[in-house]
């Protein structure tokens, strides 16, 4: 459905947003696009919709090279932008009428389709109220059904559940799953790992404009984190005893988090293939080194662990 081939883009001022990015999306697949802020997710999405022309590389949607077939491609795609991007002084009904008219939804089905979408968004009773009177969740739901109204084959959802309540988020998730059953291809960008874990068939993780990992949520966890995550809280580490020293002593990959609120207390995260054996062994080795373990826990890895492992825990602003 989508083929992204060696895509690069440099914004005015020399900011490199994408750097030789390549991946593809199969028809009927749900692809999650993950990455820290400024990683290039939105730029990538805008190139798929034809809003940004890449500095080099190409994007094909349904076999069409996007920038040579903008109108055809735009008929195929439905976009739910990151910002609510709705006309505040139109009603939901009018918003959808406008969208249907500019996308050329056949007149004979237009009204039925709008009614169907309003029902799907749970807005039938509020369809004649101005958008500016809606809650954040209602606006997101309206933006979602607007993207679906012209029966788009490919749906692009940029931060679909940003700033909305749990109820609205669940409703949107249900709709996305239903659309998957209908055979729609969906790409979504998100910063919520539970959302990516719940909805995506496959994930593409971008960092600094480059593809850094790709695969299903399960395979990414297995490949990048292992079967278990051991988390420790301990004291007694000297200044010289850094992350690499402790990894060497234990024989496992250790990531030291920043210092705890209590002075001298530190937190470590250890990836393990065999947690049940590794956990007691780690505690024993640390005790032998004179390091007191205050608290230890073991859990299955989450997508968040994958994300932090790949992109690091340093803040990105």
């Amino acid at each position: 459905m989508i083929e992204i081939d060696h895509l690069s883009h440099v914004y005015k001022g020399g900011i490199k947003a994408l750097d030789d990015l390549s991946f593809s999306v199969e028809e009927g697949e749900i692809l999650g696009l993950l990455g820290p802020n400024g990683a290039g997710k939105s730029t990538c999405v805008k190139m798929i919709t034809g809003a940004i022309r890449p500095s080099c590389g190409s994007v094909r949607v349904s076999g069409y090279e996007v920038f040579r077939n903008l109108r055809k491609v735009r008929h195929i795609i439905g976009v739910m932008p990151q910002e609510t991007a709705l006309y505040q002084d139109l009603t939901a009904q009018e918003t959808l009428e406008y969208h249907a008219d500019i996308y050329g939804v056949p007149r004979e089905v237009r009204d039925d389709r709008i009614a169907e979408m309003l029902k799907l968004a749970g807005l039938s009773l509020r369809k004649d109220d101005l958008v500016k009177t809606y809650s954040g969740g209602m606006k997101r739901r309206l933006a979602l059904v607007r993207a679906l109204l012209h029966d788009s084959k490919l749906l692009i959802l940029d931060e679909m559940s940003l700033g909305i309540d749990v109820q609205s988020r669940n409703l949107i998730w249900q709709q996305v799953k239903m659309l998957k059953k209908e055979g729609k291809t969906i790409i979504f960008c998100t910063n919520y790992m539970d959302e990516a874990d719940e909805l995506a068939d496959r994930l593409v993780i971008i960092d600094r404009g480059r593809l850094v990992a790709e695969g299903s949520p399960q395979s990414l966890k297995k490949t990048h984190v292992g079967n278990f995550i051991i988390e420790l809280e301990f004291r007694g580490l000297t200044d010289e005893q850094d992350q690499s020293w402790i990894s060497e002593q234990i024989g496992l990959e250790v990531e030291l988090a920043s210092e705890n609120e209590d002075p001298g207390i530190q937190t470590a995260r250890i990836q393990s293939e065999d947690g049940y054996n590794d956990l007691p062994q780690v505690i024993r080795i640390l005790s032998n080194l004179g390091i007191t373990v205050r608290q230890a826990s073991m859990r299955s890895p989450s997508l968040g662990d994958v994300f932090l492992t790949i992109t690091g825990s340093k803040l990105r602003d």
């Binding site: 809003a51 735009r74 932008p81 991007a85 996308y103």
Partner: peptide, 14 residues
């Protein structure tokens, strides 16, 4: 400013 134009710009409208 409100980004409301995005829907129009993403559409096939010339």
């Amino acid at each position: 400013e409100s980004k409301a134009i995005e829907d129009t710009l993403n559409s096939p409208i010339s």
